[in-house]
């Protein structure tokens, strides 16, 4: 076991990994946390397995920035699979109040008669329409799953922006959203594009499925040439997952992803839209 500098990049990265875990598994868009600062950290090499971090850190509410109490966590970076996390946090906020807020958000989303669709959350200037805050929060919770899966001891992620969000009205009472999101990866500084489907039913059940075009460099000159190969990868990787979606969903992905503007130019006819 060796002590590390709490300011070190390894410490804050590991603390974020622990928060990705709790933000996803907490299944509570009203109770998301962000890292404030790491107070203590040590690490241990475990032969044939990986490195395990022991952390104590302060957190704040992801959306309001209010202090939300300290966490203790362990993060085990494994050579062969995603990081394994244990985390326990003190709560300075009223737990009942958060649950009540989640319920309110859930009902609000569930009772939309017209499905919500939106582009760019936040927009270029950081604005989020009040009505879209829950859509953002749900994406934070869902993308935490992706970021947890992809994080490594020397690679970290942040949700940079939601490019598109589209709700699916369901008859079973759950809330479903389709997203395309950009993840900011450090230290490579790339923006990874992911497609993500988030399903939320109350009582702490939230699942996110995703495909990322991570090996490409999407931030090209906008000609879209590079994304052609990325879409191919996306298509191949997503084979099984896409079969699980209904025909109408799959059809819509083509439209959803065909954002004409800005950093990412999808091919005009995404190949994966023709799967049905």
């Amino acid at each position: 076991m060796f002590a590390l500098n709490p300011n070190s990049r390894q410490a804050s990265r590991a603390a974020w990994v622990a928060l990705h875990y709790s933000n996803y598994h907490g299944a509570s868009p009203s109770g998301l946390r962000a890292l404030r600062h790491v107070m203590k950290v040590s690490a241990k090499m475990i032969a044939d397995v990986g490195v395990k971090y022991y952390l104590q850190f302060a957190t704040e509410d992801y959306i309001s920035g209010q202090e939300t109490g300290n966490c203790f966590a362990t993060v085990l970076y494994q050579k062969k699979s995603k990081p394994e996390v244990n985390i326990k946090c003190a709560r300075t906020q009223d737990q009942k109040q958060i649950q009540e807020e989640d319920r309110r958000v859930f009902q609000y989303l569930r009772h939309q008669t017209k499905p919500i669709t939106a582009n760019k959350i936040p927009d270029s200037h950081g604005n989020i329409e009040h009505a879209l805050l829950p859509v953002w929060a749900l994406a934070v919770a869902g993308s935490s799953h992706i970021m947890l899966d992809k994080s490594k001891e020397n690679v970290g992620y942040f949700l940079a922006q939601i490019r598109t969000a589209k709700q699916w009205i369901r008859k079973d009472g759950a809330v479903e959203f389709e997203y395309t999101i950009l993840l900011h990866k450090t230290p490579t500084q790339e923006m990874d594009l992911c497609y993500m489907n988030v399903l939320w039913s109350l009582h702490q059940v939230l699942t996110a499925k995703y495909i990322c075009a991570s090996e490409s460099h999407q931030l090209d000159d906008g000609s879209g040439q590079e994304f052609g190969s990325a879409a191919e990868t996306l298509h191949k990787k997503g084979g099984n997952f896409l079969q699980g979606l209904s025909a109408s969903h799959t059809r819509s992905m083509g439209k959803l992803c065909a954002q004409p503007e800005a950093a990412i130019t999808f091919p005009s006819k995404p190949r994966y839209s023709k799967r049905e």
Partner: peptide, 13 residues
């Protein structure tokens, strides 16, 4: 900030 808004820092900040 620390990563919640990142590059798209809101106007009021």
């Amino acid at each position: 900030d620390k990563g919640t808004y990142g590059f798209v820092l809101p106007d009021d900040q």
